[in-house]
Each structure stands twice: as C-alpha cells, then as structure tokens.
Write a protein that binds this DNA or RNA. Structure first.
Lengths: 228, 228
DNA sequence: TGCTATTAATAAGA
DNA sequence: TCTTATTAATAGCA
C-alpha cells in the first residue's frame, strides 16, 4: 500500500493516466560500453539566470513547470509542518492560479493584519491605550523608535497604509458585481477545467495525502477576459 | 560581474555576511585514498516521507528552511515569468509569514473571483445572459455538464460558495476593528522585527534582482497573540 | 546557523 | 508531453 517500488515522486495528480514509462530498459545496462547511438539525448538541466524569459513559449513552459513545483513544495510544507498555506498567482495575462483555501486564508489574514480604521483619537481600539496625548498609537510610536530601526519602521507603516487602503476599497465602493466580466456558463466550465489541468494542489491542513488518497482541489479560477 | 566562480546559489539574503566557506580543500583530492579522518561528516540528505513531523524542534527547523525555499522559488518564478505571486502562510501557532504584496493581490483576487451576490433571477449580471428560464447561470449550467465532469463541477460550485461566504463575511458584520488584538506600539515593532528576521522575500513584479540589488520586503506581520 | 551527501526539481531536446 | 543530464534544495549533523 505504501510500497511504490521505484521512484516514488509524490504523485499529486489524479491518476487519470497511468504513466506509460516509455523505455524501461534504461536501468538494465548502465555501462555505455556498447552505446551504439547515444549522441547525448539532451543537454540536461542548464543553469539559468534569474531574469525575465524573453521567448514567450519558453516562458510559458517554465511558468507551468515551476508553478507546479511551487505548489508541490507548498503542499509538502503544509503537511510536514502542519501549516496553512495559500498562494495566489497572476500570470502575465492576469490568469489566476491559486493554491490552498485561499479565501479562508485571506479572510484570516485580513482579520489578523492590524488595520485600524478609526481615525478619531478618542476611539476605543481595544486594549492598547492610544489616546493620552491626542496622538494615535502609530503616531506616538514613531517617537520611541530607535534611529537605526527607522527604515524598518517606515516600511511597516507603509504596509499598514496599504492594508488600510485595501481594506477600504473592499468595504467601500463595492462595484465588483458590476465589474466582473460576466463569467458565463460554458466558458466558466471550460476555463475551470483548463485551469484545473495544470493544478496539482491540495492543501489547507492535511489535504496532501502522499500518494493516492483523496485530494481536494485548490481554488481554480481564471479571469474570463485575459486583459485583452 | 556575472562570474561568481563556484557555487552560485542565488543569494537572496542581503550580503550581510560573506560566506566563509570553511574548508576549501575538498575539491583538491577527491579520491578517498588517504582519507585520514572522514567518519562520515554527515549522512547527507535523506529521503523523507511527506507526513507531519512529530518532533517539534525538527518540525520548526524544517518549516523555516522550506518556507525560505518556497519563497525563493516564488521570487524566481515571479521574475522569470513576469507573474505576480502572493503567499500567505500560517504556522501551527498562527504566525503569519507572507510573501509578495499580498494585500494588492488579495484585492485583485477578490475582484476577479467570480462571486455573484445577487440572487434575484432578474438581476443583470453583465453580459452573460442568465435569466431565460428563471434559473441563475450556475443553476442552469449544471444541466449541461457531462456526467463525467460532475465531480469537478461540484467542486467548482463548492469553491464558489466558499467565495461567497467569505465575501459576505467581509462585507457584512465587520467587527474586525473590535476583534483585533490591539496591536500596541512596542510589541508591534518587536513582533515585526522578529517575524521579519525569517523572511527573505521580495516579489511582486521585479522585486527579486538576483544577487545584491535592493530588495523590497514582504508583508511581515505576526499575530500578537499566538492563539494561546 | 553552516556544511555535505543526497534527493528533488527542472532546462533542453525529442 | 516524456526523458535525461544537470543544477538546486535540503535532511541530518556539528
């Protein structure tokens, strides 16, 4: 049940197709004594520089491969360490590929990320006393930050501000329903299946079950209109 | 400028310390003819099973290492393929480690994820005609789904439903401000710095610049109260 | 943490 | 896609 014999790359894909394994005669004679024809089948993996891949086709192949690898790593990390992981990926043309129960995690993330919406200094923002001198906590805090920490602190405030903006945009003018590009029936299915093909996910606390057990799928949606 | 000589593992960390490279005499004599003392320095990498690591210490080390690896992969993918990637990670004790401009991506994700809030069949949900027979698109769609695709379709609908719930909970009773554990000044800083230590991220469209250029930081926040 | 011996991921090619 | 030849990640130690 566990003995997978040879290479046990953790199979994440549903076993729709059994791997044919074209030429199983490679391990037989490893010595290249005869070697009638083996003009170096491939160059093997090459070292690449981490910069944007110019050739579109190659870039897409790499995107697919590495995305798969990334999701697999995430699944392993999730299982090994009991962590919850969510990944959101937008391709160049704004296709969404996600891993994990992103929505749940996003919700959790938003709730835990400290964003204060009140700006009136008299507001009661839970336990942390904030109004003693007319300054909000983030205004007061900056006075007590050591000089060498200012860079970090500024960055933290920047993040806070961004959270705030995001939050406001989520709460306020909620035109999402109007803005959404329709999502018609058949196309939705087609897109979903298309997107789903390249997914191997399964996550969010114990979804990744090694070899053959039931795998949940990640959230697989694609923007119906790829940015024109 | 590009010639890094030996092992050029893409350095993601700021070059605070130069790698000392303890014993550079390994390549000199590869043959173990003399081998005065080499009682197996390490066992090397072992193959492990993908299941929750029991030993807490080991689990934490693995979490740290693999999280680093995951973020590095994400950064590389982002640069190589011009993709936007955001990762949210909750550790066992609900510490947040994130990568990329999560907030921006979350916002984008929420806007693009097809969640329909209207339930009245006469509603105008953009171009995709939905009301011809009194059924909403997702109700009608199911009629045209081939039987062998039903499993996938049901999963898709489940995801949709979850999106809907998340969305509603975000829009509706927004008690987040009340619920948030205060986020007091000094603790915020301390936590931020603590969390930030383990981060190597940098992403969101060109943040990852190979070796030594300026790295943006990921969104680094930690839940002030680790779940008690 | 840093160091290796290994395993795992993947760039090219077919 | 599938198959290698290589590079990259990392498990176990110190």
């Amino acid at each position: 049940m566990e003995d997978v014999g040879e290479a046990s790359t953790i199979t994440c894909l549903p076993p729709a197709k059994q791997k044919p394994l074209r030429n199983p005669n490679l391990l037989a004679n490893q010595k290249k004594e005869t070697t009638p024809k083996k003009p170096r089948t491939t160059k093997g993996r090459q070292k690449i520089e981490i910069k944007e891949i110019e050739v579109e086709n190659r870039r897409q192949v790499t995107f697919s491969k590495r995305r798969t690898g990334l999701f697999k790593k995430a699944a392993e990390l999730s299982v090994l360490c009991g962590a919850q992981i969510g990944i959101i990926t937008f391709s160049r043309c704004d296709r969404i590929y996600s891993f994990g129960n992103v929505d749940t995690l996003v919700d959790k993330y938003i709730r835990k990320t400290p964003v204060m919406l009140r700006t009136n200094p008299g507001g009661n923002v839970a336990a942390g006393g904030e109004n003693n001198d007319g300054l909000m906590w983030w205004e007061r805090a900056v006075e007590s930050v050591p000089e060498e920490d200012m860079e970090e602190y500024k960055m933290a405030l920047g993040v806070l501000r961004e959270n705030l903006l995001t939050r406001i945009s989520q709460m306020g003018n909620d035109r999402t329903v109007e803005n959404l590009p329709a999502f018609p029936n058949e196309m939705a299915m087609a897109d979903w299946k298309l997107t789903n093909e390249n997914l191997m996910a399964s996550n969010d606390r114990g979804g990744y079950l090694g070899n053959d057990a039931g795998l949940d799928l990640a959230v697989p949606f694609m923007s119906p209109k790829p940015r024109q």
